[in-house]
Design a protein around this nucleic acid. Structure first.
Lengths: 94, 94, 94, 94
DNA sequence: GGTTTATCAGTTCCTC
DNA sequence: GAGGAACTGATAAACC
């Protein structure tokens, strides 16, 4: 393919960068493989990375919001520990 | 389009169901609009719905895993208060 | 869970609709299974459904745009048929 | 954060690569901006890039499959002119 | 191998 | 209306 035309040049540059990107993604993948071999849970690791990217503080705020809504829903009744907690508070058995 | 052919019949059926699906999605969207008008945070609501779908218990286990990893990273220094408030309310350690 | 609170009521309604939606998605999936059993290619079917949703005419316009860009790139050289076409036009052998 | 622990080291490495990746993505985005300023349609460009990644030949086979199904649906009535222009240029039937 | 899961790209929506 | 964020749908992969 020639690069005489502008569109060709643009797409060439894009594809070059996409190749670089693919190599980096490969590297990341390999680290996760290494982590798994060392007994770490990669799913959790990925969540941790995402949380750090977002900002730990912001994440904590989100959690509090979620917990607030869950509390309003009385959803703790869905969980064994939650049941006992409610029971302790209210004296009502579910 | 005719429905004499088999492929036409199949696609007709699919498109019918997809229409039904779109109507339901519309309904869901309207509820979120109503919720927002009533001062609720729809992003948090969506997370709560997802958590309930996954199972609250499972979600709490995930949180514990994440917090464990974060603790190992020394990241707790970033979150002085952490989840103590929720813990106090529910007796559940997140 | 009670529905005394507003948030609970909203989420109840959302979850009801999500259940309906899931049932419909199940139905769609079954049709694709049936189609596959009858020898149809479900991947192609999904694309056809998407094209019809978008509008066949609009899709044709998109194709023309794509082909125009591809033509400017001289990408036909990448394909056997394309080579002969270029060869016919230019008299140059690749 | 310390890197004394293994998990910390792994996550450090991941985050380093993710930073590199983000920079590259930034670069790609800038090229698309430049392309748009020069009058190109970036949506079409992205599709072209995807097609080249997949392989032009494979893409043309997909198109043929789709057109076959569409023909069986009688949908060609919707597209009087069809792909005749492209066909004339390339000798490739889509 | 086949099903479920996870990552990815594409679309859409909302905000500014 | 442009930009970014969120959600959906599709492909690829991993586990059973």
């Amino acid at each position: 393919m020639t690069t005489n035309n502008q569109i060709g040049s643009l797409i060439d540059r894009i594809e070059g960068l996409m190749l670089d990107k693919a190599l980096i993604e490969e590297g990341i993948k390999e680290i996760y493989i290494e982590a798994k071999l060392n007994g770490f849970d990669t799913k959790t690791m990925k969540k941790v990375v995402a949380i750090r990217k977002q900002g730990v503080k912001k994440h904590q705020e989100e959690r509090q919001m979620i917990d607030l809504y869950i509390k309003d829903l009385g959803m703790l009744a869905d969980t064994p520990l939650g049941q006992s907690a409610i029971q302790r508070d209210t004296g009502v058995k579910f």
